[in-house]
Every structure is written in structure tokens, then in C-alpha cells.
């Protein structure tokens, strides 16, 4: 086998692991139950990566959006909108497929040979809009007034985000006795959500990304015109439907790439015998 072929094997998994290690590389935090407080946190990482993870070197985009909406003197959150426009216009949901640590976790869980695998939940056509509801009502409106009254809270992080529980709460509470003593009902609520998602992820492909992730909803909007696209050469296509069978989120060949559900995983490209799909 050529060296290029060896490199390409499991390339996405390698990139996902490297990005997760790189963006959570503050080992001192894991050892001492503390978080990184340096200047790198002025910038966000592209994926859903809790900034209270002891290893996190950058900020979480969803946390950043809510932090700006939680300000007393409310402004248009240009700081994070700019980040979404730059990353979204360049990569779209390529971020979900290749650069998101919580996406990696769900990918690994889907490989666990426990249940019969399914690409989607029943009522997918309706449930897929859940992520937009989470974005609008929990991450945006929820942060502004729904739950906190005048004391604004990051409602998505507080009530739903499983990435915060997995990458933030569990390692911090394991290494910090004081925090552990304060964990109560809210922590167990979030732990319950995480456990349900872990179980469902072993049966359904990336349920959080498909149905609940507000960051996926944001990047999905950019999918139709982002720089990174999966191109389909229609004239070469033999209509064998191999790409559709390989697509983990069950998209048709016409929907691949431009659909807001495509995470640019590249499985369709690999599966195409006529090589009519490419990045």
C-alpha cells in the first residue's frame, strides 16, 4: 500500500482526535482541577468544546454567544457573529464532521457493537428542526430573558449542553473537591441528559448533532455556499446510490453537500465507484 493511501485511511478520525487533543491540550488543568486562563481564550474553537473543560485552550462559540447576550448593556453580538460568518463561510458543517470533539465522541459511540444501527430517529423530518428551536429559544432568547429573569443565564449551557457535562463538569468535579461538594440537582439533570445521549448515540448516528446542536444549526445555514463543498458531477453519475447508502445521515445524492444536514464526512466520496463526488 502506498504511503498516501495509509495516510488517507481513517483520515477523518485522525484529524478529529488531533483537533480534540490540540484544543484541549492544557494538561495542568486536568491534573489540578483548574482551567486555562491565558490569552488564547480571546478566540473560539470551531466546534462545541466547553471552555470550562480543564484542558480547553480556546472559548466555546455557543458559550461566547450566550456570554455576549448575557451582558447588561445588550449589543448585537458582532464578536461571535463575525466568527460564525468566517468559519461558516469557509467550512460550513465540515466543522461538525471533522473538528468537533463532541462529534468525535458520538462517532466513537456509534461504533460500539451494542444495538442495531439506525441513521435517523422516527419523525426525523420534524425532529431535525429541534436544533433550530434550541438555538432560538435556549441559546438566544433563553439567555436573554426566558429562564433567568433579569439575572441572565447561559440557558443552553445550563440546562442542556452535554459537552459541558462531559468535557467540563466530569473532569473538573473529579479533580476539585470543593466543586464536587456543590454538585446538586442541576448537575444530575445534565448528567442524565448526557447518559441518555450516550445510549442513543450507540443506536442512532450523532443524535445530538442531528436534532439538538445549535452550533450545527448555525453552520448548517452556511452549508449552501461555504467554500468547502462536496461537488457532484452529475454527468458521470451512474445512479448506483452507493453514496446514499454510505451517507450516515441518510441524504440523497442531490441533497449531499448543500443540505444543512450534511456534515461533510466524505463517506459518500469514498463510496462512489464512478468517482463523481469530490471535495
Amino acid at each position: 500500500m502506498e504511503s498516501g493511501e495509509v495516510m488517507k485511511r481513517n483520515l477523518r478520525l485522525k484529524v478529529q482526535i488531533l483537533v480534540t487533543i490540540f484544543t484541549n491540550g492544557y494538561a495542568y488543568g486536568f491534573l489540578n482541577g483548574k482551567i486555562y486562563q491565558g490569552p488564547l481564550k480571546y478566540t473560539c474553537v470551531p466546534g462545541l468544546n466547553c471552555y470550562s473543560c480543564p484542558g480547553a485552550l480556546g472559548s466555546c462559540p455557543m458559550g461566547a454567544l450566550q456570554a455576549l447576550l448575557n451582558q447588561r448593556n445588550l449589543q448585537v453580538p458582532f464578536g461571535i457573529l463575525g466568527f460564525f460568518f468566517v468559519v461558516g463561510s469557509l467550512l460550513g458543517r465540515f466543522v461538525c464532521g471533522w473538528l468537533c470533539p463532541f462529534g468525535l465522541v458520538q462517532d466513537l459511540l456509534y461504533k460500539v457493537p451494542l444495538f442495531q444501527k439506525q441513521k435517523r430517529l422516527p419523525f426525523h423530518g420534524i425532529l431535525k428542526y429541534g436544533k433550530y428551536i434550541v438555538l432560538i429559544f435556549l441559546a438566544c432568547a433563553g439567555s436573554l430573558f426566558l429562564f433567568g429573569g433579569f439575572a441572565r443565564v447561559p440557558a443552553f449551557c445550563k440546562y442542556l449542553c452535554p459537552s459541558g457535562t462531559l468535557f467540563g463538569a466530569l473532569p473538573l468535579l473529579a479533580g476539585n473537591k470543593l466543586l464536587r461538594s456543590q454538585a446538586g440537582g442541576l448537575f444530575f439533570w445534565k448528567l442524565g441528559i448526557l447518559l441518555v445521549l450516550v445510549l442513543v448515540s450507540m443506536k442512532i448516528y450523532r443524535p445530538f448533532c442531528q436534532y439538538l446542536c445549535p452550533l450545527g444549526a448555525v453552520y448548517g445555514w452556511f452549508n449552501r455556499f461555504s467554500l468547502v463543498q462536496v461537488h457532484w458531477e452529475q454527468e458521470k453519475c451512474t445512479r448506483c446510490h452507493s453514496c446514499e447508502k454510505a451517507c450516515p445521515v441518510g441524504l440523497s445524492v442531490k441533497e449531499i453537500s448543500r443540505s444543512s444536514e450534511c456534515i461533510r464526512c466524505g463517506k459518500c466520496i469514498k463510496a462512489c465507484p464512478a468517482r463523481c463526488l469530490h471535495f
Binding site: K41, G82, L179, Q182, G184
Partner: peptide, 29 residues
């Protein structure tokens, strides 16, 4: 937008939030 956000001090707001342990994120606050 990023430039406007930086001028308005929004990156500072993000940094200030990110360098404190987010109690809501970890299910305590």
C-alpha cells in the same frame, strides 16, 4: 463583524467569561 466586535470590547467579554469556571456549564450555578 469581528473587527466591530473587537472595537466594542466583545472579545474581552468572551475572554472574561471563558477564564472563570462556568458554574452553569458544569451544572452547579
Amino acid at each position: 463583524f469581528l473587527g466591530v466586535g473587537a472595537v466594542w470590547g466583545q472579545l474581552e467579554v468572551i475572554w472574561k467569561k471563558a477564564v472563570m469556571i462556568c458554574l452553569e456549564c458544569i451544572g452547579i450555578g
